[in-house]
């Protein structure tokens, strides 16, 4: 067969496989859920060849901006939009939680074999710069029997704006009044102390290289890279080491009190198994989609994501949505008009 014939044949196959209409949907936003989103959009496209969702992982801020400018069909963000942003939009925007993320305290104390336990007060004191030595009473009282060195604590945090920082500072704001009034929560904050590392890898690298340092990294990154991290005391008084199940339990614990717009922080939740430093990440979808085909494609994708899509979460080390939240979201899909 000549080259031309092969090409012609291939073209014919492509044409035959193309459905009568094709729907392109553009989305942009958060980088943290990008691996699972691209898996979902790819799997969904395989099951529904006529729908192609293009996702640009430009960051939550960029996702919200592009949604407000209407240059994308929907956005994605690691932090919920603020009331002010929603008002500014001029059109109604719905939040749909997709997966969960968590942040864990990782540290480097040479010669220490025991795993450290952290209380909320202790973490706030360290990150506020009030506990400056590892043998500070706030730390040693939570770790009886562990011999902590009298060395200066080196705090490491993210320098780039990130959802992980949002989760971490949201948690500290809840457990410490001083943190809430002095520093607050955001994807970037004015850190009272510490060194900034770019990305999870930057923070992890700094911790690894700097003796007596402590920082926070995204749970999935810590799991995939085998980083040592400590357990954190939750609202029920239990020390919980972060795991995907612990993060899902945190979401389940707050499901009952979940507001209808899903804009909720799930840090410091009730529940014995709940890991306290975790958060949803959201898709931001306009409540009114003019194009009927686009609308039905988006709604169908959401339905698929909440059911068949969930099986792809755990292989990629994302914590699944608890079923209470899935049920609530399935109802909310009908709100898209």
């Amino acid at each position: 067969m000549s080259m031309r014939k092969i090409l012609g044949f291939a073209l014919l196959m492509v044409l035959a496989a193309t459905p009568a209409w094709a729907q392109n949907i553009n989305a942009a936003g958060a980088t943290f859920p990008y691996p699972i989103y691209s898996k979902w959009f790819d799997e969904y496209h395989k099951a529904h060849p006529n729908v192609q969702i293009n996702y640009q992982s430009i960051g939550s801020g960029g996702g919200i901006r592009q949604l407000l400018d209407k240059t994308v069909d929907f956005g994605a963000s690691d932090g919920p939009m603020t009331d002010e942003q929603l008002q500014q939009a001029g059109f109604k925007i719905l939040h749909f939680p997709t997966v969960l993320g968590g942040a864990v305290p990782s540290y480097n104390i040479p010669g220490l074999s025991a795993e450290l336990k952290f209380t909320p007060e202790e973490l706030a004191a360290i990150f506020l710069g009030k506990a400056t030595k590892w043998n500070d009473p706030a730390i040693s009282s939570a770790n009886p029997g562990v011999k902590l060195p009298a060395e200066d604590i080196v705090v490491v945090h993210r320098s780039d704006g990130s959802g992980t920082t949002y989760i971490w500072t949201d948690y500290l704001s809840k457990v410490s009044d001083e943190w809430r009034t002095k520093v607050g929560k955001n994807t970037s904050v004015n850190w009272p102390v510490g060194l900034g590392g770019k990305g999870n890898e930057g923070v992890a690298g700094l911790i690894k290289q700097t003796p007596y340092s402590i920082g926070y990294v995204e749970l999935i990154y810590a799991i995939q890279n085998d980083l040592p991290y400590g357990s954190v005391k939750n609202a029920a008084g239990e020390f919980v080491k972060a795991s995907l199940a612990g993060v899902s339990a945190a979401a389940a614990g707050t499901a009952k009190s979940m507001p209808d717009d899903f804009r909720v922080s799930i840090t410091d939740p009730p529940g014995k198994e709940a890991y306290p430093i975790s958060s949803f990440t959201w898709l931001l979808i306009p409540a009114q989609v003019q194009d009927a085909r686009k609308k039905s494609a988006i709604k169908d994708f959401l339905g698929w994501m909440l059911t068949s899509g969930q099986q792809f979460c755990e292989p990629l080390a994302y914590a699944k949505l608890p079923k209470e939240v899935v049920a609530k979201e399935q109802k909310a899909v009908a709100l898209i008009q």
Binding site: T31, G59, G62, Q85, S188
Partner: peptide, 23 residues
């Protein structure tokens, strides 16, 4: 001491910045 440069803060914070004043 640690510091910060203009180019570095732009690279770090621009993509996640929300709010008009911040941007």
């Amino acid at each position: 001491a640690p510091g910060y440069s203009i180019a570095a803060v732009l690279a770090n914070e621009f993509s996640e910045a929300t709010g008009n004043l911040y941007l």
